[in-house]
Design a protein around this nucleic acid. Structure first.
Lengths: 193, 193
DNA sequence: TATCGACTAACAAACGTTAGTTTATAATGC
DNA sequence: GCATTATAAACTAACGTTTGTTAGTCGATA
């Protein structure tokens, strides 16, 4: 069987579903809606996926994996904290802008996961935040960063990064590299002259 | 008829609905769910509200009004830009923490508004962002702030403020004043020593 | 001759909402 | 002070849709 360059049917379903869930939310997107966009019947979807929730689960955990891979990469390489932070931000923005629809679902729709998956998801999220926090702690120890409430700082920084998904447009003024650069400036030195 | 100190039935419905929509989303909260929480039948809700969407509409526009009132107050009083920004942040955090559930719905569920309301809502949001942007522009002119992409800066700042709704707990370590203060520090001077 | 991927048909459950009714309380007219 | 009327707020029952999903089938491709 020849390895096709075309996306598999499953991948088509996933990306169509993600796009629609971005616009209309998880609960606002029905299996019939997804099927119609692919010009097939709802029942046919079940030849490729096992349930609607599997779409959400696969999306959320797939993205979590990408983000965590990104930050592990940063923490494995030795740099000072400032460089580490800059790299973490770049990686985050890269993953986010390369998977806009999936990222949106990841950020906004994870609450719709069933109990068990939701718990697992939250702990992955916590792990990611911890990795980020470690960078800030290193920065403090190195005397580079102000002493701040690190938990608070991480949440504030991540919110700025994640909000990019709300306004970023591939054809907009800023490309992902520029966005990451500006965010790094802002995080490090703030507004004040 | 004596003016009661009790909330009206409508207010009870609103705040119950907001609490449930915070946990389960707009579409994840049915009229029967809301009614059950109030120990009445779903049909009885319609003696007090006209539709499910009215709950969302009233919540979103009610909060928009509070936020806009807050920023107008700031811009009407003459301070320098740094003081204005600090006040705007304080007001934002105040409104947000005093109406946690409604704020959460305001931030996350407005997409479920019907076409017409959604457009109106978005323009109110734009107005708010413009008022914020004006403060940053003033700061630039006064030579207080760095020259930055103001649109970008406003979105980044507002994301940090809005994310507070995700983690703030009335019984947590930081009270709203402290949160606002920390956010102001961070916005002005960043992490770097 | 399997396997893949589509189909039709149907399911039980849940959805927002309406109609019409009942009951308790408040306001009014005599 | 009493009978009447009005109002508020609950109820039961039902409506037409839409929902996610399953079962079973059929044609095309490997």
């Amino acid at each position: 069987m020849p390895e096709s360059l075309e996306p598999t049917r499953r991948e088509q379903i996933m990306s169509t579903a993600q796009k629609m869930m971005r616009s209309n939310g998880y609960q606002g997107t029905s299996m019939r809606d997804i099927a119609a966009a692919l010009q097939i019947e709802a029942a046919s979807l079940y030849n490729h996926i096992s349930s609607k929730e599997e779409i959400l689960r696969s999306t959320c955990f797939g993205m979590a994996d990408k983000f965590i891979t990104g930050i592990n990469e940063v923490n494995d390489i030795y740099f000072n904290a400032e460089e580490k932070l800059a790299m973490a931000v770049r990686n985050h923005i890269k993953v986010l802008t390369e998977n806009l629809n999936a990222s949106f679902v990841f950020i906004h729709e994870w609450r719709n996961l069933a109990e068990e998956s939701r718990k697992e998801f939250v702990s992955l999220r916590d792990e990611y935040e911890n990795q980020f926090r470690k960078i800030l702690e290193t920065g403090e120890e190195e005397g580079l960063f102000n002493e701040v409430n690190n938990k608070f700082a991480v949440l504030t920084i991540l919110s700025s990064l994640n909000w990019v998904v709300e306004w970023y447009r591939p054809d907009g003024e800023m490309n992902p590299q520029q966005i990451a650069e500006k965010l790094n400036e802002f995080i490090l030195t703030g507004l004040k002259k």
